[in-house]
Design a protein around this nucleic acid. Structure first.
Length: 1121
RNA sequence: GCCCACGUGGCGGAAUUGGCAGACGCGCUAGAUUCAGGUUCUAGUGAGUAACAUCGUACAGGUUCAAGUCCUGUCGUGGGCACCA
C-alpha cells in the first residue's frame, strides 16, 4: 500500500520530543514542577506545590506485563491503547494524570532458561525488559517512565519483603474484624502472667526450664495466629521440574511447562491467612465498579454458603465421639439416612469397627492414590465403604450408618456430611449404588415434580420427631426453626463456610523474593522461625551457578551453604515467594516510586488514592447535635415505615448559614440564606420504598438502608459536590448533593419550596466510578424520569465539576487475572489499610477487562496455528497511530474480536484523509522527492517542507461547520466517558468525511478537531498542530500550549439545535413518509402536517382514523382501522 | 451438571428512557484518474422487485399505537465453576 503520510518520520520525531521534555511526568505534592513544563503552563503553577494546589488526580493503570522472550503480542497494546487514550483525554480535561508502567519480572521462564543455559535469570530478564520497553515506547504511550517499577529490582522487592513482615507480624482480630499488630494478641489465661513469677533454671543447663517452656508455648500460640504462618499442606509437586507449581500452572494433572506429571504431596509451606478476609472481600465488591461477570467470578471463588453445623453422636465404638457435619439444608435433617466422612478425616480410625478395618484401610489407600484428575474425571461413579459404625440422628433419634467416601472432601466444612439422598444429587447417586434408604422430607411446590432428587425449596414433610417438628413449613422457615432448636439444645449452630482457602505462599524456586525469615532452635532442639529486622532488607538471594533444585527436593537456594548457614547457628528460609507477591502492591509503588524511606509516602498515597481529598471544601451550617438528630430520626423513621400515618411529620435539622449560602449560590445560583432544612416522613417512606429494595441493583444502584437515611445531615454537610439539577414534576427546583463514602456515591436531593424551606426529596446511591459527575446528570431514577429534560440547562451541565475517586480510577487488564491477582491484591491492600498504611479499603475502583484478540481465522492466536500478528510488523507498514486506532476501532474494549489486517488499512486511510485535510499536495510532492535522495539522518528535517493547504484560513466558522464540529465533540466526549472508543473513532471519521469537502477550512475548527484526535493518534495530531501554530500563529496562549496539554473543547448544545427537523410519519407503525418541519412545531401542527402528506393520504384514505400518536421532535404514528 | 454473558448484512460492528434497523469501517459492484497495477476520487451495496408492494435483528409466542430493545419458552455460541454438602 502506498504510504498515506510520512508517519515513519513523524512518529520518532514526537516520541523523542516527549521523552526529552518529559511531557508526561506526573507531579506529586511537594515535588518541583519546572516552570517550562507544559503542565506548569496549563495549570499556571510551578515550583513546589501542595496537594490542594495541584489539580484533581486521575490514576489510570495497566496490568503490568510479564516481559517474556517472545515480545509484545497484539493483545498487550489493546489495553495499553485504551488507557493511553483515557489518560490523554483526562489530561486535556485538566486532571493530574498518573499513568505508569512497569514489569512483573519474576517468573518461571527466566529460571527455566537459566537451568538450561546457565545464564543468570537477571540477564534474561533485563534483555526481555529492554525489548518490551522498546516496543511499548514505539507506540507513543504517555507513560511517566520516571515511575517505572521492576519487581526483581532489590529497591522494589525490599518493600515486598517488608510487606511480608507486616503480614508476619500481624494477626486478625475477629472482634474488630481487622488485622492488628501481633503485640495486641492476648495469650490465653494459662499462658498469662506466669512466666515472670518463675525463676530461670540456675544451673544453666540446656534442659528446658518452666519459663522457657511457657515462652515456647507463647511463641507457638502467636505463630498459630499470624497472617503469615507455616503449615503442612498438600502441594502440586513436579518431580521433573523439581518444584511445586501453583494450581494455575497445572493443566489436566500435568505441568504447563513441559507437560510433566504433577503429584499432590504434603510439604511444609508458608501460608497467608486470606480466609480471615473472606467476608470483607465479598462484601466490599458491592462498592466497586467492576463488571458483573468479574464480581461473580470473585464471589464464586470465595464461595460463601450459609448453613449449620449439626452434631451426630456415634454409637458404641467410641462413647465420647461426636461427628460434626456441615449442611446448607438443616431442614432436611429428618431425611439424613447415613453419614459420610472423608477418607482422610481424623475420626475414621476411631469409629471404624474391626471387621470393617481392612476394607476401610484399603479404601483409604485407594483414595489417597488418586490424583486430582482421577478424582474429578471419575466422579460420575461414586465409591465408598461402610465403617461398621452408626450415629444417632439428633432430631429423629434413628440410627444412621457411617460411611467413608471420597466425594466428601476433608478440606471443606467439617470434612463430614449428613447424606440426604432424597434431596441431594450426589447423596442420591451414592444411596442408589449402595442401596441406602431414601426418605422424602421435602414436598416440591409443583406436585408433578418427582420428589426423588428434588433439591430446590419446597415444604417440609415427614419431619416430626419426639421433640421437634418442622412438617408443613416452607424451606426457609423450616431451616430457621430447626437451626434455632439445635442451638438451644447445644446440638448445632448456624455457620458460614467459604470455599476460599488460605493462600499457599512459598515456591521452591530461585527467581523470586527470598523470605526475610531465619530458623533457630529452642532448648529442646526444635526449630522455630523468626523474622529478620527491617534493617536487614532487602534480603538478596545468593549467587548461584546451578539453578536446579538442590538434592532431596530442597529449593535451589539450599545450594548456597554460605548464604543459608549464619554464624550464630541459625539458618535461612530457602523457599521464595510466588510471582503474585510483587504484583500485589505495584500500583502503590508507582505513587512514590523512588522513595527510599517508605514503600509509599503518606502525602503521595493520600493525594493519588484520593480518599481524604475533596476538591472543594464546603462550609457546613450548624444544626442538631448528632444525638438529637439520631433520636428524632429513629422516631420519624418508625412513623414513616411502620405506621403509615397520614399526619405530616418532619424534623427541622439545620438552617443555612450565610457562609454556606455563599457557597451554594456559586454552585446553584440560588440565594438560600436562612432556609430551613428538613426531612419529612413522606420523603423517608418514599426513599425506603423506591430505593430500599434489591431491585435497585437492576438499575445499577445499591439499595438504600436505614443507616444511609440516618446520614442525611452528614451527606449535606460534607458533600463533595452540589449542583442545581433542574425542576421536578411540580416545577420545584432540585438541588443535588453528591457524597462519596467508602466506595459508594450518595446522591441526595433537596427541593426548594416557596421561599423558606428545603425538603428532603430523595436519596439513592451507587458504586463509585470515575465519572459520577456525568452519570448523575442522566441517572436512571424515577425522579429523573419525571423531570422534564428542558429544565436541565446546558449551563448546569457545563458546570459539572470533577469528583475525585478514591483508589485507582481505571484499571484495565486481561480476564486471566480475574480471580487470583485481583483477589490477592485486594487482600494485601486491606491488610495495609487495617494497619494504617493506606487510606482506602479497596485498591481498584473501576476495572475493565479487555477482550481477547483472535487471529484472522477467528481462532485464538498461537504459534502452532501460524496466525500470530506481530505488532512490530503492523507498525512498520502502517505506523503506530494506525495500529492504535485499529486496536480501538475493532469493537468494544471488553469484547472478544478477530484481527483483520484490512481493517488496519481502513483506519490508516482515515489518517491519510486527515493528513490531506490539512496539507498542501504540492508541498508534499516536493517533500517526497527531496526525501528520496536525502541522507537517512536528515530526513526528519524535511518535514518542514510540508505546508498547510491554502484552504485553511483564519476565518470564522459557518453555522453548519460549527454544527459538524460540535456534533463530533459531543459524541467523542460522551463516548470516551463510557469507554466506547470504536464509536468515538467513527464520529471523527464522519467529521473528516464532511470537512474534507469544505472549500475553506477555519483554523479554529481544525484546532478543536486535533485536540479530539490527539488521544487516539497523538503523533499525527502533534505534527499537524505544530504546522497550524507556525502558519497560523495565534495570540491565545491556550492554543500555543503543547497539544498534549491543550484544553479539551466543550460542546455547545445550542449549536446542535436545528431550526427544522425531519420527522418520520408512520401509519400503523410502518414508515410511510418523512416530513421536514420546524423543530418547535406543536403537536397539532405536527399532526396536521402528517395528515396533509400525499403519501400518508394514500394509506389513510377510506379508513377510519382510530388514534394519532404525536411525539414532538420524534415521530407521528397514525393508527387506522 | 450449575452460574453468568451474548445471538443484528458477505465480515468487524452502530442504534438515549421502546420511536426512521444496519452509523463507521472492511469487502463487493460500476465509473473517473492511470500505459498498467496500486493509490485517490464519485456513485451504489440487508433480501426481494422493472418499480412499487412485501419480508427482514437466532427461533416460537406475548405486551404495546410502536419491540433489536420489555416479558415467557426453545435453540445456539462464548466464559466461569465443577462431588464445596
Amino acid at each position: 500500500m502506498r504510504r498515506q503520510y510520512p508517519f515513519h518520520l513523524i512518529e520518532p520525531k514526537w516520541q523523542q520530543f516527549w521523552e526529552k521534555q518529559q511531557s508526561f511526568r506526573a507531579f506529586n505534592p511537594g515535588e518541583e514542577i519546572p516552570a517550562d513544563h507544559p503542565f506548569a503552563h496549563r495549570h499556571k503553577i510551578s515550583g513546589k506545590v501542595t496537594a490542594t494546589q495541584l489539580p484533581p488526580k486521575f490514576y489510570i493503570l495497566d496490568m503490568f506485563p510479564y516481559p517474556s522472550g517472545a515480545g509484545l503480542h497484539v493483545g498487550h497494546p489493546e489495553g495499553y491503547t485504551a488507557t493511553d487514550i483515557l489518560s490523554r483525554y483526562r489530561r486535556a480535561q485538566g486532571f493530574n494524570v498518573l499513568h505508569p508502567m512497569g514489569w512483573d519480572a519474576f517468573g518461571l521462564p527466566a529460571e527455566q532458561y537459566a537451568i538450561k543455559t546457565g545464564q543468570h535469570p537477571r540477564k534474561t530478564t533485563e534483555e526481555n525488559i529492554a525489548n518490551f520497553k522498546r516496543q511499548i515506547k514505539s507506540l507513543g504511550f504517555s507513560y511517566d517512565w520516571s515511575r517505572e517499577v521492576d519487581t526483581t529490582d532489590p529497591k522494589y522487592f525490599k518493600w515486598t519483603q517488608w510487606i511480608f513482615l507486616k503480614l508476619y507480624n500481624s494477626w486478625f482480630n475477629p472482634e474488630t474484624n481487622k488485622a492488628e499488630p501481633i503485640e495486641t494478641l492476648e495469650y490465653p489465661t494459662e499462658l498469662v502472667g506466669r512466666a515472670s513469677s518463675r525463676a530461670d533454671s540456675k544451673d544453666g543447663s540446656s534442659v528446658a526450664s518452666p519459663r522457657q517452656d511457657i515462652e515456647d508455648k507463647r511463641r507457638i500460640y502467636r505463630h498459630s495466629r499470624r497472617l503469615a504462618y507455616i503449615a503442612e499442606a498438600p502441594v502440586n509437586w513436579c518431580e521433573e521440574l523439581g518444584t511445586v507449581l501453583a494450581n494455575e500452572e497445572v493443566i489436566d494433572g500435568k505441568s504447563e511447562v513441559g507437560g510433566f506429571p504433577v503429584v499432590r504431596k504434603p510439604m511444609r509451606q508458608w501460608m497467608l491467612r486470606i480466609t480471615a478476609y473472606a467476608e470483607r472481600l465479598l462484601n466490599d465488591l458491592d462498592g466497586i465498579d467492576w463488571s458483573h461477570s468479574l464480581k461473580e467470578m470473585q464471589r464464586n471463588w470465595i464461595g460463601r454458603s450459609e448453613g449449620a453445623i449439626v452434631e451426630f453422636e456415634v454409637e458404641h465404638s467410641c462413647q465420647d465421639c461426636i461427628i460434626e457435619v456441615f449442611t446448607t439444608r438443616p431442614d432436611t435433617l429428618f431425611g439424613a439416612t447415613y453419614l459420610v466422612i472423608a477418607p482422610d478425616h481424623w475420626a475414621v480410625d476411631a469409629v471404624t469397627f474391626n471387621e470393617q478395618r481392612p476394607a476401610v484401610e484399603a479404601y483409604q489407600a485407594f483414595a489417597a492414590g488418586k490424583s486430582d484428575l482421577e478424582r474429578t474425571e471419575l466422579s460420575k461413579e461414586k465409591t465408598g465403604v461402610f465403617t461398621g459404625a452408626y450415629a444417632i440422628n439428633p432430631v429423629s433419634g434413628k440410627r444412621v450408618p457411617i460411611w467413608i467416601a471420597d466425594y466428601v472432601l476433608a478440606s471443606y466444612g467439617t470434612g463430614a456430611i449428613m447424606a440426604v439422598p432424597a434431596h441431594d444429587t450426589r447423596d442420591f447417586e451414592f444411596a442408589k449404588k449402595f442401596n441406602l434408604p431414601i426418605v422424602q422430607v421435602v414436598q416440591p411446590p409443583d406436585s408433578k415434580i418427582d420428589w426423588q432428587g428434588f433439591t430446590d425449596d419446597g415444604t417440609s414433610v415427614n419431619s416430626t420427631g419426639p421433640e421437634i417438628s418442622i412438617a408443613g413449613l416452607p424451606t426457609p422457615e423450616a431451616k430457621k426453626k430447626i437451626t434455632d432448636w439445635l442451638e438451644s439444645k447445644g446440638l448445632g449452630k448456624k455457620t458460614i463456610n467459604y470455599k476460599l482457602r488460605d493462600w499457599l505462599f512459598s515456591r521452591q524456586r530461585y527467581w523470586g523474593e527470598p523470605f526475610p525469615i531465619i530458623w533457630k532452635r529452642n532448648a529442646n532442639g526444635n526449630l522455630f522461625h523468626e523474622a529478620l529486622p527491617e534493617s536487614a532488607l532487602p534480603l538478596m538471594p545468593p549467587e548461584l551457578t546451578d539453578y536446579k533444585p538442590a538434592p532431596g527436593g530442597e529449593p535451589p537456594l539450599a545450594r548456597a551453604k554460605d548464604w543459608v548457614n549464619l554464624p550464630d547457628g541459625s539458618i535461612r528460609e530457602t523457599n521464595t515467594m510466588p510471582q503474585w507477591a510483587g504484583s500485589c502492591w505495584y500500583y502503590l509503588r508507582y505513587l512514590d516510586a523512588q522513595n527510599p524511606q517508605s514503600f509509599v509516602g503518606n502525602e503521595a498515597e493520600n493525594y493519588w488514592l484520593g480518599a481524604r481529598s475533596s476538591t472543594q471544601a464546603k462550609p457546613a451550617s450548624p444544626g442538631l447535635s448528632k444525638a438529637e438528630w439520631q433520636q428524632k430520626f429513629d422516631e420519624l423513621y418508625e412513623y414513616a415505615t411502620r405506621n403509615l400515618g397520614n399526619e405530616k411529620r418532619f424534623i427541622h435539622f439545620n438552617t443555612v448559614s450565610e457562609e454556606e449560602a455563599a457557597f451554594l449560590e456559586t454552585k446553584t445560583g440560588f440565594k438560600l440564606t436562612g432556609f430551613r432544612r428538613m426531612v419529612d416522613h413522606y420523603a423517608l417512606r418514599h426513599i425506603d420504598v423506591e430505593h430500599g429494595g434489591e431491585s435497585e441493583r437492576n438499575r445499577g444502584l445499591l439499595p438504600v438502608t436505614r443507616d444511609d437515611l440516618a446520614m442525611i445531615p452528614e451527606i449535606i454537610a460534607t458533600a463533595d459536590d452540589v449542583r442545581y439539577s433542574g425542576k421536578n414534576r411540580h416545577g420545584l427546583d432540585v438541588i443535588l448533593y453528591i457524597k462519596r463514602l467508602n466506595g459508594t456515591v450518595f446522591y441526595f436531593e433537596e427541593i426548594r419550596r416557596a421561599n423558606d424551606l428545603l425538603a428532603a426529596n430523595t436519596l439513592y446511591k451507587k458504586p463509585a466510578t470515575g465519572s459520577d459527575a456525568t452519570e448523575a446528570a442522566s441517572s436512571d431514577t424515577s425522579e429523573t424520569h419525571r423531570r422534564t429534560k428542558e429544565n436541565i440547562t446546558s449551563e448546569t451541565l457545563k458546570n459539572k465539576t470533577a469528583v475525585t475517586t478514591p483508589g485507582v480510577d481505571l484499571y484495565v487488564g486481561g480476564t486471566e487475572h480475574a480471580v487470583l491477582h485481583l483477589l490477592y491484591a485486594r487482600f494485601w491492600h486491606k491488610v495495609l489499610f487495617d494497619l494504617g498504611y493506606v487510606s482506602t479499603p479497596e485498591p481498584f475502583f473501576k476495572l475493565v477487562n479487555q477482550g481477547l484478540i483472535l487471529g484472522e481465522d477467528g481462532q485464538k492466536m498461537s504459534k502452532s496455528r501460524g496466525n500470530v500478528v506481530n505488532p512490530d510488523d503492523v507498525m512498520g507498514e502502517y505506523g503506530a497511530d494506525a495500529f492504535r486506532l485499529y486496536e480501538m476501532f475493532m469493537g468494544p474494549l471488553e469484547m472478544v474480536k478477530p484481527w483483520n489486517t484490512n481493517g488496519v488499512a481502513g483506519v490508516y486511510k482515515f489518517l491519510g484523509r486527515v493528513w490531506r485535510l490539512f496539507v498542501d499536495e504540492k508541498s508534499e510532492t516536493e517533500f517526497e522527492q527531496a526525501e528520496a535522495t536525502a541522507e537517512m539522518q536528515r530526513r526528519g528535517e524535511l518535514l518542514e517542507k510540508i505546508h498547510l493547504s491554502a484552504a485553511i484560513k483564519g476565518i470564522p466558522a459557518s453555522p453548519s461547520q460549527l454544527k459538524t464540529l460540535h456534533t463530533c465533540i459531543k459524541k467523542v466526549t460522551e463516548d470516551l466517558d463510557g469507554l466506547r472508543f470504536n464509536t468515538a473513532i467513527s464520529a471523527m471519521m464522519v467529521f473528516v468525511n464532511d470537512a474534507i469537502a469544505w472549500e475553506t477550512k477555519p483554523v479554529s475548527v481544525l484546532r478543536d478537531f486535533l485536540i479530539l484526535l490527539q488521544p487516539f493518534a497523538p503523533h499525527l495530531a502533534e505534527e499537524l498542530w505544530e504546522k497550524l501554530n507556525i502558519e497560523h500563529p495565534t495570540s491565545n496562549t491556550e492554543h500555543r500550549i503543547d497539544l498534549a496539554y491543550a484544553s479539551w473543547p466543550n460542546f455547545d448544545a445550542a449549536l446542535l439545535i436545528e431550526n427544522e427537523i425531519e420527522i418520520p410519519i408512520q401509519v400503523n407503525g410502518k414508515l410511510r413518509d418523512k416530513l421536514v418541519i420546524l423543530t418547535n412545531a406543536s403537536q397539532d401542527e405536527l399532526q396536521a402536517a402528517a395528515l396533509a402528506s400525499e403519501k400518508v393520504k394514500s394509506f389513510v384514505d377510506g379508513k377510519e382514523i382510530k388514534k394519532i400518536i404525536v411525539i414532538p421532535k420524534k415521530l407521528v404514528n397514525i393508527v387506522v382501522g
